[in-house]
Design a protein around this nucleic acid. Sequence first.
DNA 1: ATGGTCGAATATCGA
Length: 254
Amino acid sequence: MLRIATWNVNSIRVREPHVLDFLRRQEPDVLCLQETKVVDDDFPTDELQRLGYAVAMAGQRTYNGVAIVSRLPFTEVRVGLVDDAPDAERRLIAATVRGVRVYSAYVPNGKEVGAPSFRAKLAWLDRLGATLDAAGELPAVIGGDFNIARDERDVHDPVAYRGQLHFHPDEHAALERLLGRGLKDAFRLHEPAAGHYSWWDYRGTSLARNQGLRIDYLFLSAPLAARCRAARMHPEERRRDRPSDHVPVVADLD
DNA sequence: ATGGTCGAATATCGA
């Protein structure tokens, strides 16, 4: 059994107790984190280590920052996209765990449809694809905040959302280009129903009205998809004190 | 069309 999870924690310093509780309760072997928002020297590792987890991290001041937390040994840690500049935003880290290439990805938000950062978001997904291609044939898991809701089931109001940021045809095309490599959406292997979200805006009544988006995913390459026995999200995390605006996604592999 | 709330950093910006 390999239990893998992903979670955009929106500051690991604020969310450290939530992450520790989650690890104690769910005991994932591997947890991909996004938006850690700390430089590596400030990453709080002590309590994680006490629970038996080590951390591979690619931190950054104020924004971004990704990490892989693992209680299994890992090797070949690599930071960034294959063509990233040395000072690129810290949005991707990879490590090999038990023969599986694990990626923690924080896809750019895109800010506004048509803006330069929107085009950079689309390009980032294509560059992630090139990064996967360059890594070779290992079974792969890409966990992360993709900032895209895949289909009508993944937004509370698809008519209103169509063409908006997070639900735009160009974003859908870019995501499907990435997944065309045979990657499967772990959650959708087990749950076909609409209305399961991974993110709710902090503002207004979105949580109370369950007006969220499913934008966080675990994508599995074909050999791992065949081993996926369960997948779920943990919406209860969104109702805790001082929650992240995202909740964890978990998959169990044989 | 705007604002609503967080986090980092301490005025605003990003989400």
